[in-house]
Amino acid sequence: MKLTSLWSTFRASRNFKWVVLAAIVISGSLLLLLPFITSNTYVLHIMISIGLYSVLALSLNLVTGFAGQLSFCHIAFYGIGAYTGALLMLRLNVSFWIAMFAGAFMAAIFGFLLGLPTLRLRGDYLAIVTLGFGEIVRLVFVNESWLTRGPLGLPGVPAPVLFGYRFSGRVPYYYLILVVFLITWFIMRRLTVSGIGLAMLSVKSDEIAAESVGIRPVKYKLMAFVISAAIAGWVGTFYASYIAFVSPDTFMYTDSITVLAMVILGGLGSLPGAVVGATVLTLIPELLRAINEYRMVLYGLLMIVMMIFRPDGFWGMRYRVKNAYKKTIRRVKDD
């Protein structure tokens, strides 16, 4: 409670703009220059993981935080993107850049196919169906070995080539995920402050009221599902190329739950929240390697503590920009 009022005082103060600007410039240049500050591959790997999970959390946030649909199969779309991209690159020598979009496209198609019949289901039922879908996708990776080589996975996924330069080491991947992250952030930002974002929020909190003002709930749920799946598939191809290997056990339902936990702990319906959640939940297991077996217990505890003290997450809806929709037209001149 106190933190919120502190925030609004700060927000209203004259310095707010400058502080935010300074924070963006400083953290932005730190992020840009990180590979020059440290050449520690471990640090870079952690940063790449944070970027990757931020993109996954941001995209899932559209479904769960905005359209209000619990989805337990986000990792399946990530996997579909990873396998699609890897297979195209390995079998058909398709360029990484094209494979990335193919991965996104394929995941979007599956998002649509799953969403069309199931999004009429509510709450728990949808959760169960998505859980099942995620497992089916994983089992396809395991069992269709003529295509996927089953549990052996697909090794040797090629690195991206940009203007004749073949990616090697962590640094180029670090910059690539930075770009992917910024594009995702941009898309999410524009969408969530638009009429689409408002309609999704209205579907989340009261479908009946939404319908009574002319909003068609299924349309917005489907839209959220497809966009979110596409972004997950997109970054899935990135992952395949970065690790140079895909296998079914990377795409377990527990990973879907981890991404969901990032969104919920970070703050449903908040973009900074998703990034904070992704960062915290990527760092915790790294910092606490020693007690890795108790990781899930720790997540559970963290969830309970959050439910009690900050039920809307680290950086939830309450910090959202008020009337952001109106702010997008400040620069339109009167005519």
Binding site: G195, I196, L201, S202, V213, K326
Partner: peptide, 17 residues
């Protein structure tokens, strides 16, 4: 009010982006 306005809740993905 905005979300009830037909001009707002018929915005497209491309337009918003």
């Amino acid at each position: 009010l905005l979300l009830a306005h037909p001009g707002c809740n018929r915005e497209t993905i491309w337009g918003s982006l």
